[in-house]
Structures are given as structure tokens and as C-alpha cells.
């Protein structure tokens, strides 16, 4: 039972991180970045390919590669589309996602690449009759630390205030001196760092990395954002968390019926959206963008 709850919480935390990564970029650009999935995937590939290095080095390397990929994505593609119609940005991000999947296939092949990442992670810790895998314990601690760090960053730093202001009304924020290019680049860096953590957590649980590795996570994280309220970052995190928890509990309770987990999850999503069409933490209507 405790194992079940812990798993649910740690999967919830992972989804919360992914939703935050997506939400940060959505906030400043009103862009649903489908290619976030490919950021998670590149993080996972980097970990697998640098598996011979010490785990911390390999992980740091993956953080650098992933945030760099995120910045390049913004600089080369999304920056040119700034202010374009939402439909255009949506199609562009979807196209970029598919394109990168093809690139990964060319570079790494269509078959899964695997490696045993830090074998000690699958070891178990026994504590008061409960056994917990090292991996889920580390994941739980990591997500808690990261979520607290994000909360601090958003609420207590100038960057956080600028980010929230720009998410609400970019035009006015710029009139007060908020530098659009810097802020958006930084949002992408942070989104990349979060994707690196999510990729690492996923690859520890399932070290079979293929070109579409990050996709399920990304789609469900998007569902999380919608549930939580698409224009609120705490909402995004909460929504992601709820999706992760529901999914994890369904997977446990349904046993062999877990193929239906997604159906039940989406049923829950519809109910939430029927009750709160704007999402759980939504407020106010949309502002015009820059």
C-alpha cells in the first residue's frame, strides 16, 4: 500500500515536472511545444550513449545537451514564428517534433538503445516492513527538491516575477523593461533542464530509448496542463501531478486491465473539464500577445 502511494506520488511528481516544462514555454509564447517530447528523448539518448561515464557526469552532460537543444529550437525556429497565429505555431511544433524523431532514427536507429543505467538504482531499501526501490526513492526526493526550487524561482526571484508578468501580458511587461528575447530564451533553458530531469527519471525506469521515447509523457503532461489551467504555472504542475497519480493508481489497481488505464484517465479528464472548463486553477480570460 505504502509502496503504491509512493509510486503514485513519484510518478505524479515526474509528470508535474514535465507539465511545468511545457507550461513555462506556453506561458511566455502561447506555444504548445510538442517537440518537448524530443527534448526528453535527447536527454535519455545522451544518458544511454554516455553510460560509460560516471552517472553524475553523464547526467550533467545530458542537462547541457538538452537545454542547448531547447535554446536552439527557440532561436532557429520558434523565434521566427513569434506572434504568428496559434494554429501556425501548433503545426510548426508538431512538424518539428516529427522531424526530430526522424533525425533520431537516422542517428540512433529505430530500435531501442539500451544500457543499464546505475544498476544500484534497482536495489531495494527495506524500511519498517516496506520495500522501496532506490530509483523511486531518488525520484521522489529529486522531484520534491526540483518543485521547491521552481517554486522559489517563480515566486522569489526577479526572473520569476518577469516570467509571470510576461505570461499574463507580455506587451505591458516589455513596456516596463522586460527583455522579451532574454526571457523567452531563459524559459526554454529551464524547460530543457526540466526535460533532462524527466528524461533521466524515465530512462532509469525504462532504459529502452527509441525515437518516440518522450511522446507519451509529453501528451499526458499536456493533458495535465489543460486540467490544471493552461495559463497558470502552479496549475500546470498540479495538473501534471494529478495525471501522474491517477495513472499510477490505475496501473496498480487495474492489474491486467491496465490497457484501459488511458481510457479511465481520459474519462476523469473529461469530468474535470466539464466541472471546470478553464482548468482547476484558471482565472480570467486570455490577453492579447506580443
Amino acid at each position: 500500500m505504502i509502496q503504491t502511494i509512493l509510486n503514485a506520488l513519484s510518478l505524479g511528481g515526474t509528470y508535474a515536472l514535465a507539465s511545468l516544462g511545457l507550461g513555462l514555454v506556453f506561458g511566455v509564447m502561447r506555444l504548445v511545444n510538442f517537440a518537448y517530447s524530443e527534448l526528453i528523448t535527447i536527454a535519455a539518448y545522451t544518458l544511454v550513449m554516455t553510460n560509460q561515464l560516471p552517472i553524475m557526469v553523464s547526467f550533467l552532460f545530458s542537462v547541457v545537451v538538452t537545454s542547448l537543444a531547447a535554446v536552439l529550437m527557440e532561436l532557429l525556429i520558434y523565434r521566427r514564428l513569434r506572434g504568428a497565429a496559434p494554429a501556425i505555431m501548433l503545426v510548426a511544433s508538431f512538424g518539428l517534433s516529427k522531424l526530430l524523431q526522424q533525425v533520431y532514427e537516422l542517428c540512433f536507429g529505430a530500435l531501442p538503445r539500451s544500457a543499464s543505467i546505475a544498476p544500484w538504482m534497482s536495489g531495494e531499501l527495506k524500511f519498517a516492513g516496506v520495500s522501496i526501490t532506490n530509483a523511486s526513492l531518488i525520484t521522489a526526493i529529486l522531484t520534491i527538491v526540483l518543485l521547491l526550487a521552481m517554486r522559489y524561482l517563480l515566486n522569489k526571484t526577479s526572473f520569476g516575477i518577469q516570467l509571470k508578468a510576461a505570461s499574463a501580458d507580455f506587451r505591458t511587461a516589455r513596456l516596463l523593461g522586460v527583455r522579451a528575447n532574454h526571457l523567452i530564451s531563459l524559459a526554454f533553458v529551464m524547460s530543457g533542464v526540466l526535460a533532462a530531469f524527466v528524461g533521466a527519471i524515465l530512462v532509469v525506469g525504462n532504459p529502452q530509448v527509441e525515437p518516440m521515447f518522450g511522446m507519451n509523457m509529453t501528451i499526458l503532461a499536456l493533458v495535465g496542463i489543460v486540467i490544471g489551467g493552461i495559463s497558470s504555472l502552479p496549475g500546470s504542475a498540479l495538473g501534471g501531478f494529478i495525471v501522474g497519480v491517477i495513472l499510477s493508481l490505475l496501473n496498480t489497481w487495474l492489474g491486467n486491465g491496465r490497457v484501459y488505464s488511458y481510457s479511465w484517465l481520459f474519462a476523469a479528464v473529461f469530468i474535470i473539464l466539464l466541472v471546470r472548463p478553464g482548468g482547476l486553477l484558471s482565472k480570467g480570460q486570455e490577453m492579447e500577445r506580443v
Binding site: K164, A165, A168, D169, T172, L175, L176, G177, G284
Partner: peptide
């Protein structure tokens, strides 16, 4: 705004979700 010209926009455009001090801090960026 950094070169010395600021606008108080129509309808005020206060960031309602931020605190009064946070609204001011935004001005400090400029």
C-alpha cells in the same frame, strides 16, 4: 524604456495576480 521614456497604458494594465511590490519590481527592470 531604458533610454528614458515610459508609458502608463490605457486601462492601467496592472498585473492583478502579482503583489503591489512585485508590480513595482517589474518597473525596476526598465
Amino acid at each position: 524604456v531604458r533610454s528614458g521614456l515610459a508609458l502608463v497604458p490605457e486601462g492601467r494594465q496592472i498585473f492583478g495576480g502579482l503583489t503591489v511590490m512585485e508590480n513595482l519590481q517589474l518597473g525596476l527592470t526598465g
